[in-house]
Write a protein that binds this DNA or RNA. Structure first.
Length: 295
DNA sequence: TGCCAGGCCGAAA
DNA sequence: TTTCGGCATGGC
């Protein structure tokens, strides 16, 4: 896919922190991207968004067409965050493709695309995505975030952020396995602890090989993840969409069921929504959850 | 207080 | 094969 045209420069803050500055990125809003339920480790703070990804603490500020990635140097931007933030896709092309596949079902998708036009699908670390969405099941977003923060602080590797404070990486599968069910108990994830441990075991033993999942067909990848106890179609779809960047997955949760019933009472053929069905799903999720689907 | 949450498991039908 | 109760916990 051809790259979008935007400029990137690297600098330092007055305090000496690394900054990557992006100018003129089309279809990108950090606020929307991190507030559409795909990632649980970022929070809105005064003047921006902060959180941990790939063992780095970063802050994102947006002003006047510029996006400032504070705590991100050139090497990390090129190796990690360009891909992480979904900046390797041309969203003009993505949106055109979605319109071509879904427009026949009415204007809803165009309204949703306009409403959430700054959303990008992140590429999170596969293990973190699998673990996070296991924890997400039958749970609400504020509590999912709390569990993950507590677990990271309790089990994850501590490191010093650009702000001089201690932050914690997402716990590795080894750390989760070492903790065991008893070690996970303080984080109050309930029945999901057993599932998380099964995921850690199968990931570490290679029984569920993430390198294989990465390359496998959609069907085979989903089947592989679903061999983990506690991973069903929805959790697998989310992990594949947000952690393996398989953009064709269209996770169906209670919100999307609501959207489908409300706007597509005649039904739609989900299998034929194209290579970016998952992006469309996020537009619809955001539209319904945060805007109540208002016109 | 009761309902619900980015569901899935396991047993019953 | 499909249906459905149960599940840990706490946000709202």
């Amino acid at each position: 896919m051809a790259k979008e045209k935007f400029t990137v420069r690297f600098s330092k803050t007055a305090g000496g922190a690394d900054v990557t500055v992006l100018s003129g990125v089309p279809y990108f809003s950090a606020a929307q991207t991190f507030d559409c339920g795909q990632c649980f480790r970022f929070d809105e703070v005064s003047g921006g968004i902060e959180g941990v990804a790939h063992g780095r603490f970063i802050r994102i500020e947006e002003e006047g067409g510029e996006v400032r990635l504070i705590g991100v140097n050139e090497q990390d931007y090129r190796a990690i965050f360009e891909e992480y933030l979904g900046l390797c896709e041309d969203y003009g092309v993505v949106r055109e493709d979605i319109g071509a596949h879904m427009g026949k079902y009415g204007d809803v998708i165009f309204n949703a695309m306009e409403c959430g036009k700054g959303i990008r699908i992140l590429k999170q670390e596969p293990w973190e995505a699998v673990a996070s969405f296991i924890i997400s099941q039958n749970n609400n977003i504020p509590r999912i975030k709390k569990i993950i923060e507590n677990m990271s602080a309790g089990l994850g590797e501590p490191f010093c952020g650009f702000d001089g404070k201690t932050h914690y990486a997402f716990p590795t599968a080894e750390q989760v396995l070492a903790a065991g069910e008893a070690g996970l108990a303080p984080f109050k994830m309930g029945f999901r602890a057993r599932y998380l441990i099964d995921a850690a075991k199968k990931h570490l033993s290679g029984e569920v090989d993430f390198a294989y999942v990465e390359k496998a067909s959609a069907e085979d990848a989903q089947k592989a993840l679903m061999s983990i106890c506690g991973v069903g179609p929805k959790v697998a779809s989310c992990a594949l969409l947000f952690g393996f960047h398989k953009l064709e997955f269209f996770p169906i949760d209670v919100w999307i069921k609501r959207v489908l019933a409300k706007y597509y009472p005649g039904g739609i053929d989900i299998a034929s929504l194209g290579a970016y069905a998952g992006v469309a799903q996020q537009y619809l999720f955001y539209y319904e959850r945060y805007m109540g689907g208002e016109e």
